[in-house]
């Protein structure tokens, strides 16, 4: 295996929001690194500021302090170079599937014909051929989230920021989409940062899991997940899976065994 190269470094990021009872410190001195072609899950107690981290990386929020370094260069944010996917599919209801997929390329000013051709390829690959002219309203939750994934991937982003992208879906659809995601990440050589509250999902998908402490968020521990599996479903059958699962649960102070 080639030595791991650092792609993104987040260093000493802090951010507080003005609340009713004074400032609320959401992030305080948070640091972590993401390697090239990494698949990192960030888990932590709810409300610990996971989404805030994403918003800062994506350039939707400005941090109060700290630096972001990308491939050795200090940058303000990765605005325009990230693929952001959220729990809500955020498809534009007035755009067809095709229109939604093209959104990012339009923004970039890519030639219409070229963009459409590319979109058709992606739609075909993700089993959505024939749905080009359908409106999001008429699609199932899983299909909509697949459209959102295509919209993200077609931009060829440097890093995918996935903010609980599957948590609104039923379990079967989620398993299926986890597989689709893992395949796509492999095919297109993407780096992924996944925020999730689903420990099971984090272990099944990631190469590394970052555990955050409660507010203000700090990195509690980073776990390397050493499971060689082709799909998230086979990963769940791996002998090491339950060990990782239990360790992470313990770190999040979730009780896995009833105490007498």
């Amino acid at each position: 295996m080639p030595p791991k190269q650092v792609q993104l470094t987040v260093q000493n990021i802090s951010k507080s929001f003005a609340g009713k009872g004074g400032d609320v410190n959401v992030l305080d001195d948070l640091s972590f690194t993401i390697n090239e072609r990494d698949f990192v899950s960030i888990i932590g107690p709810s409300g610990c500021g996971k989404t805030t981290i994403f918003n800062i990386i994506a350039g939707l929020l400005e941090p109060d302090g700290g630096t972001i370094t990308y491939r050795g260069k200090e940058i303000e944010s990765l605005r325009g170079r990230v693929g952001y996917m959220m729990q809500k599919d955020l498809l534009f209801p007035w755009r067809t599937v095709m229109g939604n997929v093209l959104l990012g390329l339009e923004t970039r000013g890519v030639d219409q014909k070229e963009a459409e051709e590319k979109a058709r390829e992606y739609l075909k690959q993700f089993g959505l051929a024939g749905f080009e002219n359908a409106y999001p309203k008429t699609l199932s939750g899983g299909m909509r989230q697949r459209v959102a994934l295509i919209r993200t991937l077609i931009m060829d982003p440097d890093i995918l920021l996935l903010d609980e992208p599957f948590s609104a879906l039923d379990y079967q659809t989620r398993l299926y989409l986890e597989g689709v995601l893992k395949d796509a990440v492999q095919t297109y050589n993407k780096t992924v940062i996944l925020v999730t509250h689903d420990i099971d999902e984090a272990v099944a998908l990631s190469k590394r899991v970052v555990v955050l402490s409660g507010r203000p968020a700090r990195v509690k521990v980073v776990h390397e997940i050493d499971i060689e599996a082709t799909s998230p479903i086979t990963a769940r059958n791996d002998v090491k899976f339950s060990t990782y699962f239990k360790t992470l649960c313990a770190e999040l102070d979730i009780q896995t065994e009833t105490t007498s």
């Binding site: 918003n55 605005r79 325009g80 952001y84 955020l90 923004t107």
Partner: peptide
């Protein structure tokens, strides 16, 4: 606001957010 944020994360400028979102 989420649709607008999404467009901004894609690198859209204010006019594009206005006209498309």
């Amino acid at each position: 606001v989420d649709l607008q944020s999404l467009m901004i994360s894609m690198g859209a400028d204010k006019h594009q957010v206005f006209w498309k979102a």
